[in-house]
Amino acid sequence: MLETSYVLLTIVGCAVVTWLSRVLPFALLKRHQLPPLMVELLSFVPITIMTALWINSLFSQHVGHLPTPNVANILASVPTVIVAFLTKQLLWIVIAGMISLAVIRAFIG
């Protein structure tokens, strides 16, 4: 179980930064605009951060050495990507991922 105060602090801290990013443009728009280069950089954030989190979960880290592959997670990613391609529904993608890993663990322990 995670420490409640740590989780609450994170909830409030993230609430402030995400709220500001939604509300400040309403307040500032009349006077300023984001520079086009900034807009371009931000447009890559969703795909790069999702990729970073995904790849990060496929390996165990040993700083100074090559990462060790997490074979079960790598294998389970394959059917998950296929179901994403076929259904385009987040709920099915998640269910497919969980079933895949459960089946893989049943075989390779």
């Binding site: 995904w54 979960s57 997670n73 389970a76 998950t80 990507v81 991922g97 969980m98 890993l101 459960a102």
Partner: peptide, 28 residues
């Protein structure tokens, strides 16, 4: 939960969000 592969739900979610982002984002 580990027997049901629940810990993979998060990774599957990122895969799903990544895929949906790629097909939905018409600006790139």
């Amino acid at each position: 939960p580990e027997k049901l592969g629940l810990d993979f739900a998060l990774v599957a979610m990122f895969i799903g969000l990544l895929y949906l982002q790629v097909i939905a984002d018409k600006t790139l």
